[in-house]
Amino acid sequence: MVDDQGAVADVGRGDRRAFESLYHRYADRVYRFAFTLLRNRHLAEEVVQETFIAVWKGAKGFEGRSQVSSWLFGIARNQAHALLRREARGERARELPAPLPDPEEAFARDQLASRVWEALGRLSEAHREVVFLAYYEGMSYQDIAQMLSLPEGTVKSRMHHARRALAEVLT
């Protein structure tokens, strides 16, 4: 199987199969990231769509200086913020998409997950993204700092604060 860097290079040359393969590799992760940040399934779906459209258009310019995952999550984060800005300005038409299973329903059957999800909701979006990238994606604090354009110390202190808050619901 072609690695991520090779897949993005192929996408940059207009390879549709590579593009779909990249989608299948990352769509779930991008959706989970967006849903953790925005806590809204329809917005999260839009983030996935806009992210991959941006990947198709921008793959040619990917120079491989960062990991593909960092590049993709960086795009997803920008798309999430752009969506929120459009929402705040009232520019985004409210759509009524077909019903979807609510991801939060899954948590209702799992008490621990439900408590963790609630605790994540009490954190700021800035803290939630660090938690996701560190714990779920396993990214180093250096990579997170680079992706978010933050000092490494800020990433570490956000994570420390978030961990304390999350630990409280586990005791």
Binding site: A27, D28, Y31, R32, F35, T36, A44, E45, V48, P101, P103, A106, F107, D110, L112, A113, V116, W117, L120, F132, Y135, Y136
Partner: peptide, 9 residues
């Protein structure tokens, strides 16, 4: 374990 329960798009 919590994030893993979020389905894909």
């Amino acid at each position: 374990s919590t994030v893993r329960q979020i389905p894909g798009p």
